[in-house]
């Protein structure tokens, strides 16, 4: 199975390294980063490209763009792992449209295009007879989409709620454990590499809301948009709030929840009993899926990380290989 890899940041590197070292039967015929690209239809020497990237900061020829790779290389699957732009979805949205037009399967970790244009992209993929898979967009390594579409097949999904942002979960864990202020815990999260220089997307709940939108559209196909989500972040929490919660054997977690029958779609800090399965520590993620037959299923795992995200992406690629036959 042939694939091109667009994006060579932390996630792209993880995918490339795992394909090179684990040899899961995936041949990379094109790679592009924001500055350059390379194409080799017989299969790229991944180690050599990663080394070149390490030395020069670029993965290939500056004359070859990501769009060139998408349009000219010989491949079955586009692996799209460029950074998320939540406002426009670009440039990923353009890459995905171009690859779908060429009847290529899509595997992406990019939340922007899926949150903004799920309806359009999934309809286009269906029309072209190819897969659009995005396990890595929500919950990192946790196989949420696989669980929903395979394991819980035939169930009616009544509600979903969980911890979908590792940065907030780390901050809340540290505030509770050490009595830190929000500012102190955020600083620590930055030092650990868990928070961006501008933490707005994480701490205001926007990142969790985008993931909630992706889940809602996947499960209910209801055209949910980011603006529909009732948003409250964690940046105004006080150490006293966590202490008062603790006195009642509770703690506080940023919970994303969608319950269509009650018209609930919100991300907000919530009081939650410490023994609850959603109370995970550090940067972990957790999601409860409530269904008519299975009742509650709670999945927990690593919500981010280079290799962890590669797990979700490679799982999607192999799913396509196994479900779309030799043609793929």
């Amino acid at each position: 199975m042939k694939a091109v890899l667009i994006g060579l940041g932390s996630v792209g590197r993880g995918v490339a390294e795992m394909i090179a070292t684990k040899n899961p039967g995936i041949t990379i015929t094109g790679i592009a980063d924001s500055k350059s690209g390379c194409i080799c239809n017989e299969g790229i020497d991944i180690a050599a490209v990663l080394e070149h990237k390490r030395r020069t900061g670029a993965c290939g020829d500056p004359a070859i763009s990501a769009m060139d790779v998408i349009k000219k290389a010989d491949y079955d699957v586009l692996i799209e792992v460029t950074p998320t732009n939540a406002l426009t979805g670009e440039p990923a949205l353009g890459y995905i449209r171009a690859a779908l037009a060429k009847k290529k399967h899509i595997v992406t970790s990019n939340k922007g295009p899926i949150a903004l244009a799920y309806k359009e992209l999934s309809a286009l993929a269906k029309k072209k007879g190819v897969a659009l898979r995005y396990e890595a967009t929500v919950g990192g390594a946790i196989p949420i989409m696989h669980t929903l579409e395979d394991g819980l097949n035939g169930n009616e999904i009544i509600a979903i709620y969980g911890v979908l942002n590792g940065t907030c979960n780390y901050i809340l864990t540290r505030m509770a454990a050490e009595g830190l202020t929000y500012e102190q815990a955020l600083m620590e999260a930055r030092e650990m590499g868990y928070a961006e220089a501008d933490p707005t997307y994480d701490v205001k709940g926007i990142d969790a809301a985008i993931k909630l939108v992706i889940l809602a559209n996947t499960i209910w196909g209801n055209g949910t948009k980011l603006a529909d989500v009732d948003l409250t972040g964690i940046d105004l929490l006080t150490p006293d709030a966590l202490r008062l919660a603790e006195e009642g054997d509770c703690t506080i977690r940023l919970i994303a929840e969608a319950i269509p029958k009650k018209k609930i779609l919100r991300v907000s800090p919530r009081l939650i009993e410490k023994s609850h399965p959603l109370v995970v520590e550090g940067t972990l993620n957790a999601l409860t899926i409530e269904t008519d037959m299975a009742k509650e299923i709670t999945l927990t795992g690593r919500g981010a990380g280079s290799i962890e995200t590669a797990s979700a992406i490679i799982g999607d690629i192999l799913y396509i290989r196994d479900h779309y036959g030799k043609r793929a």
Binding site: A159, L236, L237, A241, I255, L271, I272, H276, E290
Partner: peptide, 10 residues
């Protein structure tokens, strides 16, 4: 005011 509600049973 910031109101923090409990996560209740669904």
């Amino acid at each position: 005011l910031l109101l923090i509600e409990p996560l209740e049973e669904i």
